[in-house]
């Protein structure tokens, strides 16, 4: 049983979710320590995506409890969970096509003057001041992700890899407490994957951002994650360091035995 504690930014307890009689997630419990990069791996159909969608409020769970930094956020709507500090990315990068790269980033901060209709009409000076301040942060992030040259390009015109980078930059712009990375390396070429990996490690070390990383590429998981959770058939199979898991018979069977 996982119990919420101060050291864990996220605690998941006995999470269950089924679709039309199929138990996609069948009693999953784990925690994500504050400041860690925790990996979540498992073969296709293990229920990882369902966990991601449940944690981020994209579909309700049948039972169980999700605690985010001491707050019970089980079955909260997705925008409230995001406001609480859990920001997710998407497996297939979902850029906002007809917004520029800059606009994609400016969208992310939770508190914005001018985010309501009345403020938009009556507080134009405040908005301008806020935007010029926020653009500075956006520039820093874009430079870090090598997207600065593309800042005024429509996001729909970026390459696949650049979209992935934008997805991550946008998540960070929201000043998250926990970033849920849903297969960030999927469909990304090896060079870029290496870059992404370095970014994630640096952000974790320099700024103490916590990551929950769902990933198929086990080499990257091993390089990044101090702790890895293995799922199979809707349940937690094992937990530990990657090197220890490589020795674990159940884990090897789940991957190789299919």
């Amino acid at each position: 049983m996982a119990t919420p504690s101060k050291d864990n930014i996220l605690t998941v307890n006995e999470l269950k979710k089924s679709f039309g009689g199929v138990h996609a997630v069948d009693g999953v419990s784990f925690e994500v320590p504050r400041g860690s990069i925790t990996g979540l791996i498992g073969p296709n159909g293990a229920g990882k995506s369902t966990v991601v969608n449940s944690l981020s409020g994209f579909h309700p769970v049948d039972s169980g409890q999700v605690t985010l930094d001491g707050t019970n956020v089980t079955n909260w709507p997705s925008h409230k969970i995001a406001q609480q500090g859990l920001i997710r990315t998407f497996q297939i990068a979902r850029e906002l096509q007809r917004l520029t790269v800059f606009e994609n980033l400016l969208l992310a901060p939770q508190v914005q003057p001018g985010a309501t209709a009345l403020e938009a009409i009556f507080s134009r000076r405040k908005i301008a001041a806020w935007e010029s301040k926020t653009l500075g942060r956006a520039v820093a992030l874009l430079k870090r992700f090598n997207l600065f040259e593309m800042r005024d390009e429509y996001a729909g015109n970026l390459s696949g890899g650049q979209k992935k980078l934008l997805d991550l930059a946008r998540a960070l712009m929201a000043a998250p407490r926990l970033v849920l990375l849903d297969e960030p390396m999927a469909g990304v070429n090896p060079t870029l994957a290496g870059d992404l990996q370095a970014h994630i490690r640096d952000l974790n070390r320099e700024q103490g951002i916590t990551f929950l990383l769902i990933e198929h590429n086990l080499g990257i998981v091993e390089a990044l994650c101090n702790r890895v959770i293995v799922m199979a058939e809707g349940r937690i199979l094992a937990e530990g360091s990657m090197s220890a898991l490589r020795e674990n018979k159940d884990v090897v069977n789940a991957y190789l035995g299919g």
Partner: peptide
């Protein structure tokens, strides 16, 4: 305004806007 930007984001992909904390 930021309001209009959020509306356009919802037009493009409401799931992304929701994942960034916007109440669709």
């Amino acid at each position: 305004s930021p309001y209009g930007r959020i509306l356009r984001a919802i037009r493009e992909d409401e799931a992304v806007a929701a994942a960034l904390g916007k109440d669709i």
